[in-house]
Design a protein around this nucleic acid. Structure first.
Length: 417
RNA sequence: GUGGGUGUAGCUCAGCUGGUAGAGCACUGGGUUGUGGCCCCAGAUGCCGCGGGUUCGAGUCCCGUCACUCACCCCA
């Protein structure tokens, strides 16, 4: 029986891994620049951590989590997102003791049991950044700036930043009531999905693609008209800082996020080349979450980058392949083959990347292999070379061959590379 | 969970109205008894997703099933 990966899970193959490294190292460099430190929480957490933070009624918690039960009957869940774990770690390890302001990032796999499609997998990867302990608009701008800077640094063209404010716990509920009653008055005009949404998550109606719903929602109250003075002030300061940094954005008062913990600023960075899953980065402020999970009343804001989505956007823009060896050693005849094996491994110890043919093959086949693996130079050794003590070095690009002293191979190779 | 599309060689795919399989790329060997990329020649590789049905005969038609994929929902 031949096995294959289960639905929604996939192998990241050697030819792709170069781009993954490129993205990860670029992210690490930029995070360092902005003062973010790496944290690596475990992949498995108590189920309640996610249901409490993401929200019991969200799609993620109600139907998408990989949950199992341990021997004592406790629920454990493969993380569907990273924020809850990072918040847990911030609280559990009292990271706020040194300084309430903590800037953290983490990179790794997430798990959600959804139907896979373009840009969506059951195991997928996110790069997360979270900024704790500051509730002011400068930290919003700082974080959004970092996200945009990362995208442009990595070579992405034309990302679009969408911005909205969801209000705080004080003004948010007022708007929900207002919107619910608006929807209730004309409930029959909406599609079946929206009729359900009107009850469970009224803000979602703004996102509906059905034309009649779009028309009906046109005159609906806008959240930006309902947020309180503090939230309004926060939102407009943020816009000022973004303008100051030259970051273009568009206000989208329909932008809503499907996780319950968001407050005030929420944002999404989109691309039109991703099909239906057009968000490459999503994030927002979650001022109540640290307290909700048993920590101090510290505000926070964060974002998540969809790694697979970003990499598909970078196809054709970046192509980082792991490079070939510095040297390929080709031996002709059994005496030479033994020496090739020895030299190959000795040279590797001194930091030179060397490749060879394990079996016995003709020179033509070995040259072909040297070419295929991308060797920069080939050392050719046969009986004649062993007798004279002079090997042949062929430069594969320039097609020039020179002699090297086999007794002083290491120095000679280092000189040539 | 619901809908559409697609399953033929390692990969990308062709196969007309039914007559038990083909191309390109890749791979191996040779042309060069010790020199890669280009060219030429040769070779290996398929339960045509799986099961059933119709038929003298099914990759092709019908039914079922599974997988992949795109979309809805929702999200990164």
């Amino acid at each position: 029986m031949e096995f294959s990966t289960i639905k929604g899970f996939r192998d990241i193959l050697p030819k792709e891994v170069g781009n993954w490294h490129y993205l990860e190292t670029t992210a690490r460099t930029i995070f360092k620049l902005f003062g973010f430190k790496e944290i690596r929480p475990p992949l498995l957490e108590r189920t309640e951590l996610f249901s409490r933070s993401i929200g019991q009624d969200t799609d993620i918690v109600s139907k998408e989590m990989y949950t199992l039960t341990d021997s004592k009957g406790r629920g454990m869940t493969l993380r569907p997102e990273a924020t809850a774990s990072v918040v847990r770690a911030y609280i559990q390890n009292r990271l706020y003791q040194d300084d309430p302001v903590q800037k953290l990032f983490t990179i790794g796999p997430m798990f959600r049991h959804e139907r896979p499609q373009k840009g969506r997998f059951r195991q997928f990867h996110q790069i997360n950044a979270e900024l704790f302990g500051d509730g002011g608009p400068r930290s919003d701008a700082d974080l959004i700036h970092m996200a945009m800077h990362l995208l442009t640094s990595v070579g992405l063209v034309g990302p679009v930043l969408n911005l909205n404010s969801l209000g705080c716990e004080k003004c948010r509920d007022g708007f929900r009531k207002e919107l619910k009653s608006y929807l209730a008055q004309r409930i029959s005009a909406f599609c079946g999905d929206c009729q359900k949404r009107a009850e469970t998550n009224p803000l979602r109606v703004f996102d509906c693609k059905v034309d009649t719903c779009k028309e009906q929602i046109m005159d609906a109250p806008s959240i930006l008209d309902y947020i309180c003075e503090d939230c309004r002030e926060h939102f407009s300061s943020l816009q000022g800082y973004l303008k100051d940094l030259g970051i273009p954005f568009s206000i989208n008062h329909r932008l809503v996020r499907g996780l319950d913990y968001y407050t005030r600023t929420c944002f999404e960075i989109q691309s039109d080349q991703l099909g239906a899953q057009n968000a490459v980065i999503g994030g927002g402020r979650y001022d109540g979450l640290v307290k909700e999970l048993g920590g101090p009343d510290h505000p926070a804001i964060g974002f998540a980058i969809g790694v697979e989505r970003l990499l598909t956007l970078l196809e054709g823009i970046v192509d980082h392949q792991t490079g070939g060896p510095d040297l390929f050693i080709a031996g002709i005849g059994s005496r030479a083959e033994e020496k090739v094996f020895h030299w190959t491994n000795i040279l590797r110890r001194s930091g030179i990347c060397v490749e060879m043919e394990y079996g016995s093959k003709g020179l033509k086949a070995q040259m072909k292999k040297a070419d295929r693996v991308g060797a920069k130079k080939v050392l050719i050794v046969g009986d004649d070379e062993l007798a004279s003590g002079k090997g042949i070095i062929r430069d594969m690009g320039a097609k020039i061959q020179t002699d090297v002293d086999l007794d002083k191979l290491e120095e000679e190779i280092k000189r040539l590379l």
